[in-house]
Amino acid sequence: MKGIFSVLVENKDGVLSQISGLFARRGFNIDSLAVGETDKHDVSSMTIVSTGDQRTIDQIEKHLNKKLDVIKVRRLDETKSITLEMMLIKVSCNLNNRAQLIELCSCMGAKMMHVSAKNMTIELHAAPDVIEEFIELVRSFGILELQRTGTIAMLKG
């Protein structure tokens, strides 16, 4: 199963290493990790997505809570949350198939950031599964470079 954790942490040195170290040491997976400052400069927010069985996901939550620099841990239910990720992807294309790629982009709500004779750089921010879909759709063009930010998530309402 998938576990999405929204974690508020002290914004100070060594905290990211503590959290990633915790996952490494106890053999927990990190599928994605997004970190950034919140509106309070001394608090950072981390969204950690992990997979594992029920026991593992429970243990992750408990061990996160045990860290002194962790202020709050929330486990988010995917169906009740807004999940969002951003991707930059550079796809190979030329005069012959560029139109096709542009059409795909407009279908999926992706933005063309740069176009050159041989490739196109596209930005997409969407739910993680939409990002996955888009990657599959453009794979046949040839993916030259890809960067994802990792999921950020927030409970609705």
Partner: peptide, 11 residues
């Protein structure tokens, strides 16, 4: 006293 012990080895 440590909630992380619950279910770690036994559950």
């Amino acid at each position: 006293i440590d909630s992380a012990e619950i279910g770690k080895n036994l559950g």
